[in-house]
Amino acid sequence: MRNGHADAGEMNEVALPERREGFLNRRSLLVGSAVSLGALGLAGCATDGMSLAEAERVYGPVPDEKFPIPAVDVTKVDPKYFRRTVRYDTREAPGTVIVDPGNYYVYRIEDDGSATRYGANVGRDGFRWSGDAYVGRKSEWATWTPPAEMIKRQPEAAKYARGMPGGLDNPLGARTLHLYQDGRYTLYTIYASSDPESIGSGITSGCVGLLSQDMIHLYNRTPVKTKVVVLPA
C-alpha cells in the first residue's frame, strides 16, 4: 500500500478462491490491502421488513440480463440482510452510499430521512478499510484479471491472466461500482455476488458485495461521482 492506494500488482485480486467445476469460486472477492482513512459514524434502524414470500419475488430470477441471473436461495440468507427501508439520521446528502462493514450493511440515503439498506459481505480481518471515496466509473459484466501475485499463489488463476470475460462465474458479477479518491482508482469496488451464504460475513480483500439483485437495484440509482462513505469496522 502506498499513499492510501493498493500497489498496482494488487489490482482485482480475489481472496483465496476455491475451485468449482473449473472456475474460481466467486465466494471470495477483491482486492489489495487496507486503507486507513477517517469516517463519520452513523446509525440506522429498521422501519419495515420483508417477508419470505416477498424476498422470493425480489430475489427471483433476472432472465433478461446478458447472462440470465438465477434466483437467490433466500433460505441461505439471514432475513435481517434482505433489502429494506430504514430510518437513518445522517448529514450526508441524498444519494450518498454508506458502507457499514461492522454490521454488514450498505445504505443508500434517500431524501426523507430514510435509507435503502442492503445486506453485504465485506473485507476479512486485516483487509478492512474506511474513508470517503466516490464512484469513478461503473461496469456491467466487467472483465476480471488476476494480478501476478495471485497467480503465483494460486496457479489455477493463470488461465485468466489475460482477463476472464464477464459472466455468472466472473468474480465481479453483473454490476460493479469502482471507487476512486482524488482522481485515482482505489482498486476497491462494490460488486454483485451470487453467493447468498457470503452475505453477513467478512471474506473479501476489502471490496463489498451485494446480492446480484440488490446490486442491480443500487447500480441503477447510483450515478458516477456519487459519494461513498466507508465507516470504520
Rank of each mutant, 00 (worst) to 15 (best):
A34I: 00
G60V: 04
F82L: 06
A55W: 08
P147S: 03
P61C: 05
D78G: 06
R83N: 02
S139F: 10
S193C: 12
G183L: 13
F82Y: 14
T116R: 14
E140Q: 12
K225A: 12
A158H: 08
S28A: 13
T204Q: 11
N25G: 12
V14T: 14
E13C: 07
I216E: 04
P147L: 05
S212G: 01
G95Y: 08
S51W: 07
N3G: 07
R20S: 11
M150W: 05
N3A: 13
I69M: 05
Y88F: 15
T47P: 00
G95T: 09
D7G: 13
L172P: 01
K80F: 07
T116F: 03
T85Q: 12
E156I: 08
Y219N: 06
P61Q: 04
A148G: 04
V58D: 00
G119L: 11
N3V: 01
V208W: 03
V106G: 08
P146R: 10
L30S: 14
L210R: 06
I190H: 04
T47A: 07
R221M: 09
V229Y: 01
A133M: 15
A157W: 06
T96N: 06
A233C: 04
W129H: 10
A15W: 10
P171M: 06
Q181N: 04
Y104I: 03
G102K: 14
I109M: 02
L210M: 14
S212I: 01
P17R: 07
E54V: 09
R84K: 15
Y160R: 04
F67V: 07
E140M: 08
E92S: 09
A161K: 15
D111W: 00
K138M: 08
V230Q: 03
D182P: 00
D125Q: 11
I98Q: 03
E197T: 14
D112A: 12
R124G: 12
S194A: 11
A6T: 14
D7F: 09
V208D: 04
G102Q: 13
V62P: 00
R27N: 09
A53N: 10
A192Y: 09
K66W: 06
P70K: 01
V122G: 01
V86K: 03
K159V: 12
A46T: 12
R19M: 11
G32E: 04
A43L: 10
K80S: 14
T116S: 12
D100K: 12
V228P: 00
D125M: 07
V224D: 02
G206P: 08
T47Y: 04
G200T: 11
T143Y: 11
W144C: 06
K138P: 01
G38Y: 09
P232A: 08
F82P: 01
I190D: 06
G95L: 11
V86P: 01
Y191S: 10
G183T: 13
N170Y: 03
V135E: 10
R153W: 01
N103D: 15
Y59H: 08
P61W: 05
G113P: 01
R26Q: 13
K227L: 13
A192M: 03
G163I: 02
L179S: 02
V62L: 15
D214C: 05
P17V: 06
P17W: 09
Q181D: 06
K225T: 11
V74A: 07
V72I: 14
Y88P: 00
D78V: 09
R184Y: 07
D112F: 02
T176Q: 05
T143L: 05
W141S: 06
L210T: 07
V106R: 03
G200N: 10
P101E: 09
G131E: 07
K152I: 08
A161N: 04
R91I: 07
